[in-house]
Design a protein around this nucleic acid. Structure first.
Lengths: 140, 140
DNA sequence: GTGGCTGCAAATCATTTGCATATAC
DNA sequence: GTATATGCAAATGATTTGCAGCCAC
């Protein structure tokens, strides 16, 4: 783990660099698959055996607050985390279960006023069968 | 409760009309506030004392399958239910906690193919402070 | 009559909480 | 040295499950 880089990134957002924070940040930056808290925990625990899930949730909460990550609640079973905080769309494939990025910006942006409502955040979730699964078989 | 109307609506979607199904459907059609399963349970239990939450979930699952309702997972704590299944936007106010309809149709529609992905459903969630709360005080 | 639905109690599981210990500054 | 973060165990709470009895057809 390149401690210096991640320590500096954390200091930039006014977070004290700790081992769990650096490890989770590194994992998220290198794994753009929108992992769940459980997946993050399992992966990071290998290099940080004392890690607990509660700490993973603490770290993710801290990252959310400083907008280093965004939380995706595309299905209600489990939250997923994305270190790309530019507004973009997400596609959930019901066949393979993967969550894909869609490189379209959101037609509504934070800061807009819509019917008097002040928009601070936008999530656009698409559901269906992804390109790969469409090709592999004719999933209905 | 106008049993005949709701029984007919349920038969139209090939569901056996039962007391809990008719009661939940009536409640959802008359309360367009996107209630949670718990809110539906509390309200409907008054007229149907033997009702349980498990039955509410069963009924909601049946309605989802025949697309009589849509499930909204705008925050991960609890699902909300909407008997308006036309694609439209939802705005969650962090000040009052209400979930408002936004009368804009979705820019992406079910049936479209987007980067090869076959879109079957779309949810657009907006977060912020709603018009009412903006007026009442300068919530930051 | 029979299959599907309801009602009950217990289980599940992601997430949260309280608190003692450890760590960053 | 002090404030903050971690680690542990237990709690929370929405949702699910298994199953016996009931109802719609």
């Amino acid at each position: 783990m390149d401690t210096k880089i991640y320590a500096a990134k954390l200091r930039n957002v006014k977070l004290i660099p700790t081992i769990p924070r650096m490890a989770v940040l590194e994992f998220l930056e290198k794994n753009r698959t929108h992992p769940t808290a459980g997946e993050i925990y399992s992966a990071v625990k290998d290099c940080t055996p004392s890690l607990t899930k509660a700490t993973v949730y603490n770290v993710l909460d801290a990252f959310k607050k400083v907008k280093t990550i965004q939380e995706l609640t595309i299905n209600r079973e489990v939250a997923r985390y994305d270190c790309n905080t530019d507004p973009h769309l997400h596609f959930f494939c019901r066949s393979c279960g993967n969550l894909h990025d869609i490189d379209l910006s959101c037609p509504i942006q934070p800061g807009e006023i819509l019917f008097g409502h002040r928009v601070e955040g936008v999530q656009i979730y698409l559901y269906g069968v992804c390109a790969q699964c469409n090709n592999q078989c004719n999933n209905k």
